[in-house]
Design a protein around this nucleic acid. Structure first.
Lengths: 139, 139
DNA sequence: GTGATTGCAAATCTTTTGCACTAAA
DNA sequence: TTTAGTGCAAAAGATTTGCAATCAC
């Protein structure tokens, strides 16, 4: 057991603490899976399988709780592209998506790669919370 | 009973026939509700309640069948904005939406009011099926 | 300890399906 | 007739909830 193998735990642990989330075994395990590498898009079921495979025993109920808690504190962002399933994105900054409806694959588009040069005024009494551009693609 | 009150039936009937859909009592009733006035956004449950209230007895199963059949033949368009519910839009031309996440209200944005002046190339081997812009608004 | 978190199983909600019945052509 | 369409009730899938057991602090 060496220092460097511990670092990811420490970083993730601090990150959870910083968000006010108690770093439980489940949350730590899921956070390590989610934030280990580059940006990811997961579904509850997908993350659950992955967690089980990675020896991070978690119930599906806890997966849902965790995904929503992470989303609330800004560690994740929900992407609505498919009426039958919720996707969660580890990339939380503004950006957009390609969505392959056949395969269900979601691909990030950097915010800078989409330029919206005109948008109508929002309805009276409302303001923009966020603009989602979904480029639906087919093979 | 006069001629003019019959016209909507005839028009709707012809429209269904033109799409290759047998004009059954249920489909006619639903089509009249959907295409009576200006553009509308409905959910299965909402349309069902409305149909019952308008003395167009239809089962929820038939509502779902009908919404999907209408979508297949291009009379409706599905709008994915909310992970928990499917919306169907009687406006089938290209356009975008404001979506009030609190109230669930969908508002059309004419295609011409949104100008996307830059979009990245689609992934290798794919092409654009459609681009959806969802402006999520809050009160 | 004590309050937050978890897991399980049951409940809920939306949508789909199987199949006998009904209606359109 | 003959085949498409409908309704019902059951099934399926995703997500949520209630509650007792467990864990972090």
């Amino acid at each position: 057991m060496n220092i460097s193998s511990q670092r990811p735990y420490r970083e993730v642990l601090d990150r959870l603490r910083a968000c006010g989330l108690r770093p439980t075994r489940q949350r730590l395990g899921l956070a390590r899976l989610l934030f280990a590498g580059s940006d990811r898009h997961v579904t509850a079921e997908g993350l659950h399988s992955e967690a089980i495979a990675a020896d991070v025993p978690v119930s599906l109920a806890t997966i849902y709780n965790t995904l929503h808690q992470f989303t609330e504190v800004g560690l994740l962002r929900e992407v609505v592209v498919d009426a039958t399933r919720s996707y969660f994105d580890t990339h939380t900054a503004d950006h957009h998506h390609f969505f392959n409806e056949k395969s269900g694959l979601l691909i990030d588009i950097p915010d800078a790669d989409v330029v919206i040069s005109q948008l109508p005024p929002t309805p009276e009494g409302t303001k923009i919370h966020r603009v989602d551009v979904i480029v639906r693609i087919v093979d």
